[in-house]
């Protein structure tokens, strides 16, 4: 569950990316954050992912008030979130499997158990056969699916994605959206920021539309 109340983010220099935003996303919900570019989608995603901190208001994710957390507590909060970025942030110096292993290494899982779970995550996104491939050898859609495998390997309660289909063709984008729907069906809260109205109109999800930092 994610609850924002009167959330604001002002960047150094005075630019106000989010103004007085309040909303509630129930556990197991599927939510799209939409809006023009510069509307504050990425800022909201970064706040939810605890990558940045709000300047005012409160944001509660998984029962933790992110604006009140100590810096040293942040890593442990982040481990319970699955993050997917538009630019994937894959590590190109290691295999697909090793990319998915990273969150488990951070969590300190024993190697054998970690490999088993990483392979399960790769299987879920249809990349098990390519576990030894380097990310550079994967197509755009495959790279994004690899990033999803990495995000879900820790079995997070919340998946947060920033423009996950931004650079993909229609077919690959559909695959990605199907994956998100699958995770949502088994109880994972899914938050997707996208400027692509196409996906929003397809189902009946909750939509948070931002316009110049305000919710409309």
């Amino acid at each position: 569950m994610i609850v924002a109340s009167q959330l604001s983010k002002r960047y150094p220099g005075g630019y106000e990316a989010l103004k007085d935003v309040s909303f509630e996303i129930p556990a197991g919900g599927l939510v799209f954050i939409t809006g023009h570019s510069g509307a504050g989608k990425t800022t909201l995603i970064k706040l939810m992912a605890s990558i940045e901190r709000p300047t005012a208001g409160s944001l509660v994710v998984n029962g933790q008030n992110l604006s009140a957390l100590r810096r040293s507590a942040l890593p442990y909060v982040r481990r319970h979130l699955g993050l997917i970025f538009q630019d994937q942030k894959l590590l190109f110096d290691r295999s697909a499997l090793d990319n998915v292993l990273l969150p488990l290494q951070i969590a300190g899982l024993p190697r054998r158990e970690a490999v088993r779970r990483a392979q399960a995550a790769l299987d879920k996104v249809g990349l098990l056969a390519r576990e030894k491939a380097m990310p550079i050898a994967l197509s755009g859609g495959e790279q994004q699916r690899l990033a999803i495998a990495r995000a879900v390997v820790n079995r997070p309660a919340v998946l947060i994605a920033d423009e996950p289909t931004g650079n993909l063709d229609e077919a690959s984008a559909a695959e990605i959206m199907t994956l998100f729907a699958d995770f949502n069906r088994v109880g994972v809260t899914v938050v997707i920021a996208t400027h692509d109205r196409h996906w929003v109109e397809a189902g009946q999800p909750q939509v948070l539309q931002l316009d110049h930092g305000r919710l409309v």
Binding site: P75, V77, R78, R79, K89, L102
Partner: peptide, 16 residues
């Protein structure tokens, strides 16, 4: 840098 930045975002502690 890329690995360190990513590791931080997905929950690595400073010690790690």
């Amino acid at each position: 840098a890329a690995e360190i930045e990513l590791a931080r975002i997905i929950g690595a502690t400073d010690a790690f």
